[in-house]
Nucleic acid binder design. Structure first.
Length: 429
RNA sequence: GGAGAAGUCGCCUAGUUGGUCGAGGGCGCACGAUUGGAAAUCGUGUAACCGGUAAAACGGUUCGAGAGUUCGAAUCUCUCCUUCUCCGCCA
């Protein structure tokens, strides 16, 4: 969501940005919203003048009443009543215009960072750097669900009976591995100075619309029947929502938080729950990191954030690469985004395990997250978020990269304290 | 879930027979005076948002949120949210 004033003053920048994102259908919205704003401001001025008049006359009524001058008071009352219809009409007009303006503002994409590569869709995302050798072993790597099954670690059949497609039971060593990864990731981030946080797993509609676009909301969020509550799709939602309607003290910035939560997603849309196994599912768990900072610091934090994920995966002997999201693939709220992808020796390609985003002031504007500056001026904060680790998808990368020819799985040193000291997991079948 | 009480400008608080209350006092904070410096003291200032302006002036909106009654609402009515107390239920 952009500042209306910014659009008014820089319509060409906004239009070029829309073109850069290959959303040309939205181009007319820019002039449309500027015209609506013009009209709204005029109507508002008229309404304000009428209100000013009403307030003035009302005050004289008070005085007349106090002095016992009933007739004068009655005459003044009539004066006010005459204007009330015109005022009501203007108020209705303003409300309608503002509704339209807001709808358009929610649709116009955020201005992307100049460094974002221009491209139509995810096929034009740009690899930035690889970390670790993408090794292909000389034995065949089974599909991840099959690896899990050799440990009696996955029960999709029961999950389908109980909750349907897109859910899972993790069992035994695999379930323990899942918890270990989350715990390790939590401590990893705490060691890097982040504050650990467990947030609400359900949030209200006004927070939902503050942190994501309508399109995302429809495709992702589960609503609780009969309540104004949605299951979070990621703890980012409740973590950024934590700051709703707050004026933050500049001295306390930045807020660097790492949060754990289960995540619930409808995954409605192109892909659906097509993939076998636990790659794309309705429920998973995630260790997340978020930052709320001064605008001038957000790019510095962006670089630090994705680096954390790379470091974590490297500490678990998983090769990764960073992939920069091109303009067309970037969600409307985002200024810049980088995916961290893990190497899959089975598929011989990288796949997404994390996503780091700089939202600029877009979420802050929607949620009214402001900062009280040293000079007493208030400004909008910048918000960022990034995945630390999100199992069970992450376990796919873990199992494939740490699998031995005999079917056992190495436990990297960093993870052993969380796995009862085990160096290796031995298959049951 | 039931019964009661309450939500005012960063914090505490005054204000509930509707008008001179966008709102008094205290604390805090900022600036100034005093001081060798500090404390103390005294003085001044101190909400947000929108419109407007070169900047002001000025106008509007906001006393938890929303709706209503009224010429006019912090004050009256309704709905919701939050907090506290008691009861019920429950990890």
């Amino acid at each position: 969501m952009l500042d209306l004033k910014f659009i008014r003053e820089n319509p060409e920048i906004v239009k070029q940005n829309i073109k850069n994102k290959f959303q040309d259908a939205k181009l007319p919205l820019v002039d449309e919203v500027i015209a609506l704003d013009e009209e709204n401001r005029k109507a508002k001025q008229q309404a304000d003048a009428l209100r000013a008049n009403r307030n003035k006359v009302s005050k004289t009524i008070g005085k007349f009443m106090a002095q016992g001058k009933k007739e004068e008071a009655e005459a003044a009352k009539k004066l006010v009543t005459e204007n009330s219809e015109a005022l009501a009409a203007l108020e209705a007009k303003c409300a309608e215009l503002e509704e339209k303006i807001k709808k358009i503002l929610m649709t116009i994409p955020n201005i992307i960072d100049p460094s974002v590569p221009i491209g139509k869709d995810d096929s034009e995302n740009v690899e930035v750097q690889r970390y670790g050798d993408p090794v292909v072993p000389d034995f065949e790597i089974p599909y991840h669900s099959e690896i899990m099954e050799t440990f009696n670690g996955l029960d999709l059949d029961s999950a389908r009976r109980v909750a349907g497609n897109g859910f899972y039971y993790l069992m035994g060593d695999i379930a323990r591995l899942h918890s270990a990864v989350i715990s390790y990731a939590r401590d990893f981030m705490i060691d890097r100075g982040f504050t650990y946080c467990i947030p609400p797993y359900m949030i209200r509609a006004n927070v939902v619309t503050g942190v994501m676009s309508f399109a995302e909301m429809d495709a992702m969020m589960y609503k609780i029947e009969g309540e104004d509550l949605y299951l979070i799709g990621t703890s980012e939602h409740s973590m950024i929502g934590k700051f709703i309607d707050q004026i933050l003290d500049e001295k306390k910035l930045p807020y660097t938080l790492t949060s754990y939560s289960p995540c619930f997603r409808k995954e409605k849309g192109a892909h659906g729950i097509e993939e076998r196994g636990v790659y794309r599912i309705h429920q998973f768990e995630k260790q997340e990191m978020i930052v709320v900072c001064k605008p001038e610091d957000s790019m510095m934090w962006f670089e630090k954030l994705w680096q954390n994920t790379v470091d974590l995966f490297r500490s678990l002997d998983i090769p990764v690469r960073t992939l920069e999201c091109c303009s067309g693939d970037l969600a409307d709220l985002k200024v810049k985004s980088i995916d961290v992808e893990a190497w899959s020796p089975r598929q011989k390609k990288y796949f997404e395990v994390g996503s780091c985003s700089n939202l600029g002031d877009a979420q802050a504007r929607r949620l009214k997250i402001r900062v009280n500056g040293a000079d007493g001026k208030k400004y909008l904060a910048h918000t960022l978020n990034n995945t630390v680790v999100a199992p069970p998808r992450m376990l796919i990368a873990f199992l494939e990269n740490n699998l031995n020819a005999d079917g056992s799985v190495n436990v990297p040193a960093a993870l052993r304290p969380y796995m009862g000291g085990k160096e290796k997991l031995i298959p049951k079948q």
